[in-house]
Nucleic acid binder design. Structure first.
Length: 138
RNA sequence: GGAGUGGAUUGGGCGACCGCCGGCCACGCAUGCGUGGCGGGAGGAAAGUCCGGGCUCCACAGGGCUCGAUGGUGGGUAACUCCCACCGGCCGCGAGGCCAGGGACAGUGCCACAGAGAACAGACCGCCGGCGAGGCUCGUCCUCGCAGGUAAGGGUGAAACGGUGAGGUAAGAGCUCACCAGCAGGCCGGGUGACCGGUCUGGCUCGGCAAACCCCAUCGGGAGCAAGGCCAAGCAGGAGGAAAUCCGGUCGUUCGCGGCCGGAGCGGGGCGGCCCGUCCCGUUCGACCUCCGGGUAGGUCGCUGGAGGCGGCGGGCAACCGUCGUCCUAGAGAAAUGGUCGUCGCCCGCCGCUCGGCGGGCACAGAACCCGGCUUACAGAUCCGCUCCGAGC
RNA sequence: GCGGGUGUAGCUCAAUGGUAGAGCAAUAGCCUUCCAAGCUAAAGACGAGGGUUCGAUUCCCUUCACCCGCU
């Protein structure tokens, strides 16, 4: 049995190192909706799949609440990978002031994740800043 | 049956699909990777970090002062501010619960307000007799004043220098006596001991606070897995600062001196702080201190088999210990346990109001080197021991 | 992981173990034609739970929240 590649979520599809986070933040392209903020930047590999980095601060809650947010966001990202722009790195930040007590449901997060990602990428100037990097797959 | 008390266990079950972390095996690719298979993957508190250890490193850790911790006795333990048993005190009808529970004749200090008096106390009212003055109903009378006596009574307070009775007295008072309470000491008996029981003597009586300073006894080297080891990659140094040199041996010598070793002095650093002591380094271009600047943000080991869990037997009142058998049970690194469903269980709301249907919820909370405790949070469920009350047999 | 600090009135801060106080703010009144300023009055707090003590904001323990530092 061969699994569908888009359903998988291997470690290579994650942003893990400080340098990777810094590169996405340096691009300064973000959009927000409700409790989450999404940063986006073209990935280093122009044929690559979208990658995800997470930032959940201690102000969000205890370890259980923070881990819950990360797991639900990873699951939402995994389900949305086919609909997201390719070769793009994303960082999802959970905002402390607007976050409800627990994590939001995965389905709703998937919807807003896709719409925020498309909003950033379709903005004028994103492709120009990319400077010949991977183009938007739309 | 009701009320209560002490303890133990558990922390939703089963199934399907898709993911995630790491292990083993196989294959491909070439050492990073991918695919498939098999089995594993959060807790009783993983939490707070309040104690105690193991482990690792540090220039072995000594003495004095200081600092900090602990504080009934005996035991358990690797150790403890933990646990068990016992003693004492307080609370509860009781089962039980709580207690930092050594020393207040080693010293210092504090005890507000109230009250006359608050620590080897104190005469405000009262009581008592004496002296003086006044009054009249002339008395064993009343009123006022003065100097005294008196701690039995009133009142204050958290606390007022024993309680009851008798004697005694002007009135009183441990002033005296008996009993009781309490204190100190001796002796006898029991207990490993804290302590308990008995008896005799004493002066007749002594406040509380040491979670106030303190005294006594005991204990405490420091840091922490971001410890620490290895590999890879990378970089650039600069400025300032205190100080004091001398002696001996030996070798070389161009006879100026230089190298090495040892010692003294001086300077710096480590041993929680200070002093001694000790160790290391330096003593003229180098160590140390301060400031500025530069580089790294990777891998791997440590990393999970342990004071380990379960069961039997033996010892012990118990905590716990010994022995035998059996089991292997997470190891991440921006950090793995998630998502979508079905079904059953429990709870709540609505319709129904017998069956049933619909919707929602199922606690506290997430391993990060590992253990032993403590404390705190927690929807519920189950079991055991005991006490009190009521009813029945 | 290690270490330290702070919680007192709406805000900023005081206070030997004995009635918790100051400034600003807010309320009411006086003054003014009105406002401001000024004057007067009253209200308002020791983060929580235990313990020691006659008595605790203070001393001790536990706990909660926040802040800071080192690695």
């Amino acid at each position: 049995m061969v699994s569908v590649p888009e359903r998988r979520f291997p470690r290579a599809a994650r942003l893990l190192r400080p340098a990777e986070f810094a590169r996405v933040y340096a691009r300064k392209r973000s959009a927000a909706a409700g409790p989450i903020v999404v940063y986006a930047a073209p990935g280093p590999d122009r044929d690559g799949r979208p990658r995800l980095g997470l930032s959940v601060s201690r102000r969000i809650g205890g370890a259980v609440v923070r881990n819950r947010w990360k797991r639900v966001l990873r699951e939402a990202f995994r389900a949305a990978r086919g609909e997201l722009p390719a070769a793009t790195d994303f960082i999802v930040v959970v905002r402390s002031g607007l976050a409800p007590a627990g994590a939001a449901p995965a389905r709703a997060l998937r919807e807003s994740l896709v719409s925020l990602a498309r909003r950033i990428v379709s903005r004028p100037g994103y492709a120009a800043d990319a400077a010949g990097d991977g183009t938007v797959s739309r």
